[in-house]
Amino acid sequence: MTENDTLAQYSDLAFESAFAVLVLALILLVAEYATHRADVVAERELVAAGGGSTTPQGPGRIEEAPRRTLSERLGNMGRALVYVVAGLQIASIVLRGFATERFPLGNMYEFVSMACTAAVVFGLVVLRKKAYRTMWVYLLVPVLILMFLAATVLYADAAPVVPALRSFWLPIHVTIISVGSGIFLVSGVASLLFLLRLRYPKGEERGGVFGVIAQRLPDAQTLDRLAYRTTIIGFPLFGAGIILGAIWAEAAWGRFWGWDPKETVSFITWVVYAAYLHARATSGWRNTRAAWINVAGFVAMLFNLFIINMVVSGLHSYAGLN
């Protein structure tokens, strides 16, 4: 067994550990999410007992420092574990790079791994505020699914890449696209939750499973703003990724744009996100329709990743699935 094989094994181990920790974090976060409803009721009772006073610290009263509820502590543990997940994911990618002695973005497994890492790290950056806390559950579920697919269906042994991928454009183009995908994942999740929130506005969540789910979500405006803010980061990044890809294609394939299936769906995705930004500035389209367009953009990203790589054949056939 060579040194590189050992490194590749450590990389896989890091990936598997990241997956396991992610499952644990998700369980904790779901527990927090599920137990939160009781908190709301408890708060309401407390307020009623205080006689409607907004400042309960009256003279002569000793107020106990607000203790963290079990629910909150579970959630905090879960969110702390997300940092561990990110660390393990990054370790897995770096080890893979050393094992293969190339930039670790040479097949679909590595691409999805990178995109999931980007989504988690980006989530850690944009979901710091307390208002966004409950969103973690919904961000980690698609990440978990993608990581599962990466490890089972898409897995490819650590190996060198074909000549066309031996270029300094590989780290530039593919990293940007995979990070962009991760950001769009956050944005797509935010828009889906926004749509759910619009159907069950704050204070009117009674009835049905979705109502209960929506109860714990940030308010609609917060979700919508998050979706927009993440898209305006993802959109230029993805556009730059396409342009850099075109520059690479000019050197590798003899033309900068040739309507290869992957290029075509990238174009479609970019147009859909452009439509989202325009919809946000068009009256009557600002809320529901814009959110649906954002979701459609993410669906196009997924389509480009899975269907185009696995079903349609084109020049971008580097999935490593044989």
Binding site: W259, P261, T264, V265, F267, I268, V271, V272, A274, A275, H278, A279, T282, W285, A300, I308, V312
Partner: peptide, 18 residues
């Protein structure tokens, strides 16, 4: 609004190309 619709059509029309 027209620009939006045309953007959509452009995205839709490109699908058979892929």
């Amino acid at each position: 609004r027209t620009a939006l619709v045309l953007l959509f059509l452009l995205a839709l029309a490109a699908i058979p190309g892929a």
